[in-house]
Design a protein around this nucleic acid. Structure first.
Lengths: 356, 356
DNA sequence: TTGTATGCGTTATCAC
DNA sequence: GTGATAACGCATACAA
C-alpha cells in the first residue's frame, strides 16, 4: 500500500459516470458571444491596466451577463498562485468559545475578499495531520490555527513557507494573537482571595491545552502570592465541557473541609459546577463563589449571572486575520496579546455570607 | 463600472510582488527524481487501473516521500471536474444551534473525503448572493444550505444543476432534511396546555425564518385545538437570541392579566426570559412555566433546567451530507423529516403551583 | 509496462 | 486597442 499520499481517498476514482454533464460557461464562450478574444474578456472582467475600447467592454459585459458566466477560480489560481482561501484549524465549532473566534475570523476574512476552509481537529493529532494535508493540497494562501496540539518545529506544520497565524499560545514559533491566560487566571483568583476565600477549587481544562495549563499556572501563582498553600486535591481536571464538572464538585465538596470557591476552566464548566452545587444544596454565591472564563453570551443571563474573565473571542479572530493580511503581503508580523477583564456579576461574594 | 463580476475584488491585482517565491514540488520533480515519467508518478499516486512495475512504484513512492510532494488539488480539479469541496451556507456559527448542525456536517463531510467551505450569511440577502457566487467560482461539488432566505426558483440559487441539499424548510424546491417545526411547537404547547396553562406567551423567532414561522403556526394550532383564544398581544417577536427576551417579558408580564407560561423560540430566548422573570420576582416554574427549543448543551445545566424540544442538530447535519453523497452519485434524493422529542425538565409545572 | 502528448480554464507576454 | 500563444500542474488517451 505504501504511505497515504493524498487526503482524499474517497475521491480517487471519479464517481460512477464522471459528472461529465456539468458543462459550464467558459471565458471562450463569452468571447465568442461577444465577438472578441478571450484575452479581451479577461481584461474587461479583471481590473487590468490594459486598455479596452468602450464598445468592446460593453459587448463583453453584455455577453457575460447573458450567459451567466462564472469564472473558474481554480484555473485562475493555477496561474496566479493565489487561491483566495484561508485554512482554519479549530478543535470544535460546537464549543461556543471557538465558535465565537471562528465568527470573528469569518467576518474579517470576508472583508479581505477571501473564504474560509474549515476543519475540526478535535485536538486529535491524526485528524490534524490529515486536515493539514488537505489544506495544503488545496493550496490555501495561509493558515489560521486555534487550539490543538501542534509540535514545536515550523516545518512540521507547513512543510514550507506558508503564512501561519496562531490563536492562543502554541509551542510552534509562529506569530500569534492571544490573551495572557496566566495573568487572567491570576486576576480571577485574586478576586476570590480579595473576597476572603482561601479554599479555592480549580476545575481545570484538558492538560494537553496550553490555555488550560496557563490558567492553572495563574491560579497557583495568585495563591502563592497570597501565601495560601496550593492543595493538589483542590485541582481537578474536567476539560472544557460541563460533563465532568458535577463529579468533580461532588468529590471536592462532599468530603473533608469544604471549599468556599471555584475557579472554573471556562463558563461551561462554571455552569456545570453551579448546577452540581445546587443539587448538593449549596447556594451560589452564598455558600460557594464561582468564577468562569470567556464571558460566553449566556454568562450574563444565567441565574446567578456569572462572574467571569471576559476573553475578546471575536477580536482574537479578527486580529488573526489582520495579521494574516500583512503576512500575505510578505511582511513580517509581530505577535499580539489582547487584554482581558474581569466582569463581576452575581456568582461571587464573601465566603460564609450566610452563616449556617 | 458595470456589474461586479467576481466575488473576490480584493484579489484582482496580485499582491505587491507576486508571492512568486513559493516554489512547490510538482509531479515532474518527483518523476525526474524517480527516473520515470510524470504519467507513471500519477499512476502510482492515484489508484489507477493502469499497471506499474513494482520497482517503478517503489522509486516513485520514495521520491515523493523524500521531496515531501503534495499534489495540487486545483490542477487535478481542473481536469476531473471535482473539487472535493462542499459549500456550506449558514446564518451564524456563533449561534449554538447552527454550530451543532455545522459540527454534524463537518464530521460527515470528512468521512466522505471532502472539506467544507464555510460562509456566514447573517440572513443578509446581499451576503448570500456574494458568498454563493464565491462558492460557484470555487466550483464546489455541492451546496448545503441551512437557514437564510433563499427564493423559490432553483436557478436563482445555483444557476444550474449543482447538487443542493437544504437543512430546514425553504421555499426553494431542493431536497431537504428538517424537523416538523409546526408539530414540534404544537407538542410543546400541548404540554403546557395539559399542565393547565391557558395564557401562554410565545416569544417568536425572526419573521423571515420559516423555522420561526412554523413554530408560531404550531403554537397557534395547539391553542386552537384546545379552544384557547390566540391573543396577538401574547405573540412577541424577539429573534433567536436572548437580547430582546427581557423587554418582551416585561411587556407581557408587567401589565394586564399575567400569563402563566412562555413558549420560547429557542433555548437561548428561554434562558433570557427566565432571567427577566427572575428580575421581576417571578419564579420558574412556580409562577411561570417556560419551554425552550433545541435542547442546547447547556439546557440541562441551567437552574432550573430547561424543558425543551430536542432537535437532533448534529443528525440534521450528518443526514444532509448523506443525502449529498447520493446526489453526488447522480441519483435523485428524497427529503427527510427527522423526529423531535419533548424533554421534560424543571422549567415547567402546573400553573399557580405557589398561591400568592 | 512505459512515455508522449493533449487539454482542463485562466491570465500574462508578446506581437500586431 | 486587439489577439494569438504559452504556461500553470495534473490525469488520461494513445502510441510504443
Amino acid at each position: 500500500m505504501g504511505p497515504r499520499l493524498t487526503a482524499y481517498p474517497a475521491l480517487r476514482r471519479p464517481a460512477r459516470q464522471a459528472p461529465a454533464g456539468r458543462r459550464v460557461v467558459t471565458i471562450r464562450d463569452v468571447a465568442r458571444h461577444a465577438g472578441v478574444s478571450p484575452a479581451t474578456v479577461s481584461r474587461v472582467l479583471n481590473p487590468s491596466s490594459h486598455p479596452v475600447s468602450a464598445r468592446g467592454r460593453r459587448r463583453v459585459l453584455a455577453a457575460a451577463q447573458k450567459l451567466a458566466y462564472i469564472p473558474n477560480l481554480l484555473a485562475r489560481s493555477l496561474l496566479t498562485n493565489q487561491t483566495a482561501a484561508l485554512g482554519v484549524l479549530i478543535p470544535d465549532v460546537s464549543n461556543p468559545y471557538y465558535a465565537a473566534i471562528l465568527r470573528g475570523i469569518e467576518d474579517a476574512v470576508g472583508s479581505i475578499g477571501r473564504t474560509v476552509i474549515l476543519c475540526n481537529t478535535d485536538r486529535d493529532p491524526e485528524k490534524q495531520r490529515l486536515y493539514l494535508r488537505a489544506l495544503l493540497e488545496r493550496r490555501v494562501d495561509g493558515l489560521i490555527i486555534a487550539g490543538g496540539s501542534f509540535g514545536r518545529s515550523e516545518s512540521e506544520i507547513t512543510g514550507g513557507d506558508l503564512p501561519v497565524v496562531m490563536i492562543g499560545r502554541h509551542p510552534a514559533r509562529f506569530p500569534s494573537v492571544r490573551i495572557d491566560n496566566v495573568e487572567a487566571a491570576a486576576l480571577a483568583t485574586r478576586h476570590l482571595v480579595a473576597l476572603g476565600h482561601r479554599r479555592i477549587v480549580h476545575l481545570a481544562g484538558p492538560a494537553v491545552s496550553l490555555t488550560a495549563s496557563d490558567r492553572l499556572k495563574g491560579y497557583r501563582r495568585a495563591l502563592e502570592a497570597a501565601a495560601i498553600p496550593v492543595e493538589p486535591a483542590l485541582i481537578i481536571e474536567v476539560g472544557f465541557t460541563p460533563l465532568r464538572a458535577g463529579a468533580a464538585v461532588r468529590a471536592a465538596f462532599e468530603t473533608g473541609r469544604r471549599p468556599t470557591a471555584i475557579l472554573a476552566a471556562n463558563d461551561q464548566v462554571a455552569i456545570g459546577a453551579i448546577r452540581a452545587l445546587h443539587e448538593l444544596g449549596l447556594r451560589v454565591p452564598d455558600d460557594v463563589s464561582v468564577v468562569g472564563f470567556d464571558d460566553t453570551p449566556l454568562a450574563s443571563y444565567t441565574i446567578p449571572s456569572l462572574t467571569t474573565v471576559a476573553v475578546p473571542t471575536a477580536e482574537l479572530g479578527r486580529t488573526a486575520v489582520a495579521m494574516m493580511a500583512v503576512a500575505l503581503e510578505g511582511q513580517r508580523v509581530a505577535s499580539v496579546v489582547l487584554p482581558c477583564e474581569l466582569r463581576m456579576r452575581e456568582s461571587t461574594a464573601h465566603p460564609n455570607r450566610r452563616r449556617e
